[in-house]
């Protein structure tokens, strides 16, 4: 498989009143064509900011301080704003967690879908009337693709007239309108009920297979990752702590945080057995000392963990950020 997205040592900082927050600290990742990468982490782990950085959507007081972002052979950070605008929406698209706030309440669904096509689609015919018909046809096709019944009549409706699951589908339709090579889905199902979540995730997997597009699925739900992603990357306090093929990471985690996360998930099969939560809470990202960020909560921590820990190879295609990698049971 050929490489589509390669991020190397990305750092994104926010200058806040409380001090400098390095929300993304040296993140490196790769996504191959057609692959599905799961990005897991709790709130504040930097997973959304990492991909907002990739999309060039980080705004003041945030800025990317260093790192390289290669997409399809081009460095995105070197692109002019115009080039970036042309790439965004056409080659890489992103869906946001909350579809109700991401969609414009004052425009119909058809208008919002057309915007993307008008901005990016070069295959549209030149004549005005023909163009209008072509755009309309494409909009209907996209709504149909994401499983919205009677798309013709629903194009003229506004976002508030749709249910939560339907709105998420509309956002996916907008993201997919130009057949991007990469879809970044930021918590696409967090706000949805479990039966609707299953529908939306199945839809993304299905379209991915049909269009051969790569997907980055940002989520806090390891279950979702387990069912839909080829590879997974676990983030903690702005850093990647573990990555590898999903099944291996889930069955044999090599970082204590991943282990703790897995042990924290209540399962009906574990009734009566005590849960083993991770103690304490995520450290404040302001003024973090250069040392392992998990050591304050880590059951395996030792004095030597108070140093900056790099990523280590942890088997074929696997890496983890832990000094005690070898001692992991």
């Amino acid at each position: 498989m050929t490489l589509l997205l390669e991020v190397t040592n990305l750092c994104t900082e926010f200058n806040t009143r409380a001090g400098l927050v390095r929300a993304v600290d040296g993140v490196s990742l790769r996504v191959s064509r057609g692959e599905c990468l799961g990005v897991v982490g709790e709130s504040g782990s930097g997973k959304s900011v990492t991909f907002a950085s990739v999309m060039g959507l980080v705004r003041s007081p945030g800025r990317i301080t260093h790192g390289m972002i290669f997409f399809d052979g081009r460095e995105l950070r070197d692109m002019s704003p115009d080039e970036m605008r042309a790439t965004r929406g056409r080659d890489i698209a992103m869906t946001m967690q909350d579809a109700l706030t991401a969609l414009n309440p004052a425009l119909t669904v058809g208008e919002q879908l057309s915007e993307v096509l008008i901005a990016h689609d070069e295959t549209l015919p030149a004549g005005r009337a023909a163009r209008r018909v072509a755009i309309r046809d494409k909009c209907v096709e996209m709504l149909g693709l994401v499983g919205i019944p009677s798309p013709q009549s629903r194009l003229a409706q506004y976002p508030h007239e749709f249910s939560g699951g339907m709105r998420q589908r509309i956002m996916i339709a907008i993201a997919l309108a130009c057949r991007p090579k990469l879809l970044i889905a930021d918590e696409p199902t967090t706000a949805l009920d479990v039966t609707i979540q299953a529908q939306v995730l199945e839809l993304i997997s299905d379209i991915r297979a049909r269009l051969g597009m790569a997907v980055v699925l940002i989520t806090h739900d390891l279950g979702v990752v387990a069912e839909h992603c080829d590879r997974v990357m676990v983030m903690y306090a702005g850093q990647v702590v573990e990555e590898g093929p999903t099944e291996q990471v889930i069955t044999q985690p090599r970082h204590p945080y991943t282990r703790g996360l897995l042990a924290s998930i209540p399962r009906p099969a574990m009734r009566g057995q005590p849960l083993t939560p991770i103690n304490g809470q995520v450290p404040d990202l302001v003024g973090l000392p250069p040392q392992c960020r998990f050591q304050s909560r880590c059951p395996m921590a030792r004095p030597e963990c108070l140093v900056e820990v790099p990523m280590f190879d942890a088997g074929p295609d696997r890496r983890a950020r832990c000094l005690r990698l070898e001692d992991m049971p």
């Binding site: 709790e42 806090h220 924290s264 209540p266 083993t276 939560p277 991770i278 103690n279 809470q281």
Partner: peptide, 11 residues
């Protein structure tokens, strides 16, 4: 709540 915190509260 986040998963790790959720487990603390359930316990």
């Amino acid at each position: 709540l986040d998963v790790s915190i959720q487990a603390q509260i359930i316990a």
